[in-house]
């Protein structure tokens, strides 16, 4: 077998691949949200990591204050944080229409610092544990590794949400509006589509995706005010590799980069933290618009 030739036990190889797939699931959902937002708002949403963190904190808050468990949080937390996103878009981002992209970057980056700073002040920088739902405790022995049910669920839920978003974009009328609005929002509005409303909803949806990832992460990583800022840098690299604003690019690249990271952990563990940035550099040299991006 190939793994024997390389002197690597298959348990290690498949184990890391699977762990990579789980990380990739988070990359995919987060970069997908960024792609949705970038498409319509032309803004690189630097507060995405903070909003992901808010999703996890909303999950905590729901159980502490309302006794609402994981499954309820999976629906409610994205709705709550998405609603906050809508407020952010209406009150702040909308004012940046027509000005240089840099202002959107600065605003969302500043917002991330404010949100994360506030939460560090309130909760400290250490993690708060959140128990996985009872229905998903335990796991299965796959022969090459023990797979906790919860991790399998994370991959499944992420893939389902990504596919649903892709179908929404590619197969529905609202998806046609979103694609057209990405290309030429003014003309779309002149046709009678309420583009400002569409833009608000797109931002809300992108933010809700971030919060959804935050709920999924809560039982895995512990809930911590800086959980987003650690992750988001890698996610931006994923977005650059996939191509800014490409829906399918975000999904495929997210999953693939997670697995490449996992593979690197097997063959050259020291490089696993940098491999995605290396891929990003190579992609930027060969295809500056990204693997799935359209060269303008």
């Amino acid at each position: 077998m190939l793994t024997d030739l390389l002197g690597i036990p298959p348990q290690v190889l498949f184990g890391q691949l699977l762990l990579g797939l789980i990380n990739g699931a988070f990359y995919a959902v987060l970069s997908l949200g960024l792609a949705v937002i970038f498409g319509l708002l032309n803004i690189v949403n630097f507060s995405h990591g903070a909003l992901y963190m808010l999703g996890a904190f909303a999950t905590l808050a729901l159980v502490q204050f309302f006794g609402i468990g994981y499954w309820g949080a999976l629906v409610l937390a994205p709705l709550m944080v998405g609603a906050l996103g809508i407020v952010i878009e209406r009150l702040l981002l909308r004012r940046l229409v027509g000005v240089d992209h840099l202002y959107g970057l600065l605003l969302t980056f500043g917002l991330a610092l404010v949100i994360e700073g506030t939460f560090v002040k309130l909760f400290g920088a250490s993690g708060i544990p959140y128990a996985a739902p009872a229905a998903l405790s335990g796991g299965v022995n796959l022969g090459f590794m023990f797979l906790p049910w919860y991790r399998a669920w994370v991959v499944l839920a992420s893939v389902v949400v990504c596919l649903a978003t892709w179908l929404l974009f590619e197969r529905t009328k609202i998806g046609a509006y979103l694609r057209a609005g990405t290309e030429n929002p003014k003309l779309l509005q002149a046709f009678g589509v309420n583009v400002p409303m569409l833009t608000t909803l797109a931002y809300g949806y992108g933010v809700a995706l971030a919060a959804f990832a935050g709920v999924l992460a809560a039982p895995i990583t512990q809930v911590n005010p800086l959980m987003g800022s650690n992750l988001i840098i890698v996610v931006f690299a994923v977005v650059v590799i996939g191509g800014m604003g490409s829906i399918i690019g975000a999904i495929v690249t997210g999953l693939a980069m997670g697995m490449i990271e996992g593979l690197t952990k097997v063959f050259w563990p020291e490089a696993s933290a940098t491999v995605i940035f290396l891929v990003m550099a190579i992609v930027l040299i060969l295809r500056p618009a990204g693997l799935f991006g359209k060269t303008a």
Binding site: A176, R179, A180, T182, E183, N184, K186, L187, Q189, A190, F191, G192, V193, N194, V195, P196, K294
Partner: peptide, 24 residues
């Protein structure tokens, strides 16, 4: 008035660059 409301008064616009959407 905002463009999307003007359109709903029954105005159809065909721009000079045609404005066909590539992703559709």
């Amino acid at each position: 008035t905002a463009p999307h409301i003007i359109a709903h008064l029954g105005v159809g616009y065909c721009p000079e660059e045609r404005g066909i959407f590539a992703s559709l």
